[in-house]
Design a protein around this nucleic acid. Sequence first.
DNA 1: TTAAGTATTATGTATGACATAACGAATGTA
DNA 2: TACATTCGTTATGTCATACATAATACTTAA
Lengths: 235, 235
Amino acid sequence: MTSTIFKKNLKTIDTSSLVDRVEKKLVETLQQKKLKVGDSIPKEIELAETLGVSRTVIREALLRLRMMGLIESKKKKGAVITSPDLFAILGKSMNPHILDQDTLKQIFEIRLALEIGMADFLFRRKTQENIEELKKIVSKEPEITDTHLFNISHEIAFHGKLYEITGNETMKKFQKMLLPVFDYVHHSGLLGKPIPFRKFVSHNELVDILDKGTPELFRNAMRHHLENHFARIFD
Amino acid sequence: MTSTIFKKNLKTIDTSSLVDRVEKKLVETLQQKKLKVGDSIPKEIELAETLGVSRTVIREALLRLRMMGLIESKKKKGAVITSPDLFAILGKSMNPHILDQDTLKQIFEIRLALEIGMADFLFRRKTQENIEELKKIVSKEPEITDTHLFNISHEIAFHGKLYEITGNETMKKFQKMLLPVFDYVHHSGLLGKPIPFRKFVSHNELVDILDKGTPELFRNAMRHHLENHFARIFD
DNA sequence: TTAAGTATTATGTATGACATAACGAATGTA
DNA sequence: TACATTCGTTATGTCATACATAATACTTAA
């Protein structure tokens, strides 16, 4: 009984490093002061003096904020607040070569889920202009005579445009970040089965449905359009 | 003409900092040597000597790797390779208070898209055991008499379980990370309209469909289940 | 008035020192 | 012998100081 309480007390000791604490303090302070983008923060030396730690520690903490996209440091000018670009940060770690295979596969799957699930946003935010652009992209679609190399850049153009139409910048950035991973997984031998080339729902049909159909129809159509990928995932 | 070439050449000058280069070098080396998780990397001083830079630079570079989740440093033991946890990094930046409103809304939307799009994975990987657990969660569902406080923890339990069933760890982590943002957006005045409380498709019905239905049916059901949220987004 | 050059300043890099925690070897005790 | 304690070694964590570099502000010369 006493032992349990004791252990609980032990757990409360601060095992975090100095840099950890400084980082936390800085973030808290920044959001407390409601600093706007572009505002500059004190110089490293001043921070060091204020917080009573060495410049080294301050620098490491600032480096973390910088990696989080919270600030940007310029020589002479000091550091300024920036709006954190979530996926720019994530992008740095999104290197296919340093991720393990499971994670890579799972990222592959996430993209599929997103493109099926985005239907409502597409329908809500589409414009006639968007539709026209999509049609233009489709019209440039290369022949699929060369079965062993389905045109990746065309795929990107089409699906990228869809993300754009959602009007969701974050989603668009997410897609941009997923691209290299997707490409890697698609072409590496990571997914056991070979790439099938049956044509299910075409880009053309997708645009038609987006133009005149409903979100329900579009989701199902997209699901079938992506059948090649699903088939590879589900052995 | 010459001017263009000149500019292009100018662009190629290496504006990256020393730390940038060291970081890149380290990552490349790590993936070249095909190091497994748990393998340890040379000591800071050795790295410094090998690369001909100061320990300061090495430390900053290592700090970045650590933030990417590529390595973990222990005193005495040195640094060891770890499998990068993508969303642990992102999680640190996923603080509702430091993200701008547009981004927050967009993250809210991404969650909706994901849950609708995940249907196929649910159906492919569900087990009878999963279904039972879902039913158990639903059975504990609180009454909705209190219209002004729909039970958030129950929501999390149910939807979290769904993510779990997808068998996609990355997606699950993603959800976990989105939770605070979702909660924040939901309760803050960020979305103009008030929270509606019409009951559309219930959790109970969702489980039923997952048990006996099809992915198509589930997607539509989920779409209706989330109608309250969609209604708030689409003014 | 404009352009070139100079001074200033805050971050970037280097170096050396000490603190601290983890591990293992050596020592002491039952 | 087996176990617990002590202590030294080692690699990261923190500190302090100095200098390099690049961007800005200021000054000077044409």
